[in-house]
Design a binder for these strands. Sequence first.
RNA 1: GGAGAGGUGCCAGAGCGGUUGAAUGGGACGGUCUCGAAAACCGUUGUAUGGGCAACUGUACCGAGGGUUCGAAUCCCUCCCUCUCCGCCA
Length: 430
Amino acid sequence: MLQVNFIKKNKEEVLERLAVKNFSQVSLVDRIIELDDERKKIQFEFDETQSKINTASKDIGQLMAAGKNDLAEEKKTEVATLKSALQPVNEKLSAVEENLRNELIKIPNLPHASVPKGKTPEENEVVREGGEKPLLGKEAVPHWELAKKYDLINFELGNKVTGSGFPFYKNKGAKLQRALIQYFLDYNTAAGYTEYQPPLMVNEASAYGTGQLPDKEGQMYFANADNFYLIPTAEVPVTNIYRDEIVNENELPLKMTAYTPCFRREAGSYGKDVRGLNRLHQFDKVEIVQLVHPDKSYEVLEEMVSHVEKLLQSLELPYRILRLCGGDMSFASALTYDFEVYSAAQQKWLEVSSVSNFESFQSNRMKIRFKPSLQAGRNSEGKTQLVHTLNGSSLALPRIVAALLENKQTNREIELPKVLHSYFGGATIE
RNA sequence: GGAGAGGUGCCAGAGCGGUUGAAUGGGACGGUCUCGAAAACCGUUGUAUGGGCAACUGUACCGAGGGUUCGAAUCCCUCCCUCUCCGCCA
């Protein structure tokens, strides 16, 4: 959520930048400014009256202590009048505050200056490519066939026990999952990320904090009896660790990593894109999250990109990095890099990571702030301010598995990248 | 799940209807002392949102939301959470 004061002071800039996200609702922005002005006016009125009531109430106490009951009674009727006058003001204030919030929440985050204009994924900007696309023979097959051939994943069994999009991993397929998770977590903790194993369900406030609510409830599974949402990504519980907290500046950056299954309803996704591991309702992912000083967030974003890039390189997969255009970015993001790996048998690029800087968009919702340390001086003037939040996948497993199987297949086996041998307890799947 | 107790500031812990944004202790920070440190002593230690150039000042906040009252951290209701005992259980 953007800050009202920022919108008011920078209305033209806000509108220009929102246009990059193809969001041009001048009237909404105007309405927000109006509502805030109104809010101030009403609050002033409310405070004034309340102040009078407070003083009068104290007087009553003193009058009664002094035994001047008749004067006290007089004051009481005075207060009663003030209170009845206050009642409608109070109602108006709550209504305006709620309206303001509801409108403010409709404004997406402002894209960073480097975000290209564009509406469709085709207009994303390829930043760079790395790795080598393998040369596969004609007999090469897509991963769902390899999964069957080597008895690694059973999709039909998942259909029976739960539903489509909930596969069973089996044998070396299951072990490969375990190896990848372990490797990713080790890689992240070696880079200074603190490992967490968070709850897989969150309450409403948490889902709201990272921006899943109020708009995207349709994407999450919901446990009705307890009002809990199954997490669509570890970003939700992990970022919310610091919701409503004020940390010391010298504790920043806060770096966290977590492995979790992720649950996504993916309502309305059908067709060839959902074959095999390409799109699931439950999948495993290792996530990285950072809470940082606002001055550092873009530096940190690049650092996270390079962190994920090296991880992909170590897996010996062909990849490319995209800078998402305004139209393809998420609501909450200011700048997003997507990572895709090339899955050679399907001849498709598959998204395996998305690394974003949310600036203060999430932290403003979650009220994650820091108190500048005194020595730091800077221009902060010691004022508590919002941190910037960033997160990224490192990495989402299914599509990595798809690409590993497809790209590393030979007639008789799958050759695993060196870095996994010790985790997997072997070099091949045969 | 049943019975009881409780949720107060960074932490511990008083307060249980009025002038309490909140005693006291600890921690943290700043200072005095010291070659330096420890100890001791002195001081500082909220968040949000208004007004004011500023000094300063209004309002709200003692788990969350309602209610009673001229007035609530203090009384009542609902919810959430924690602890103890019982039951159940990986």
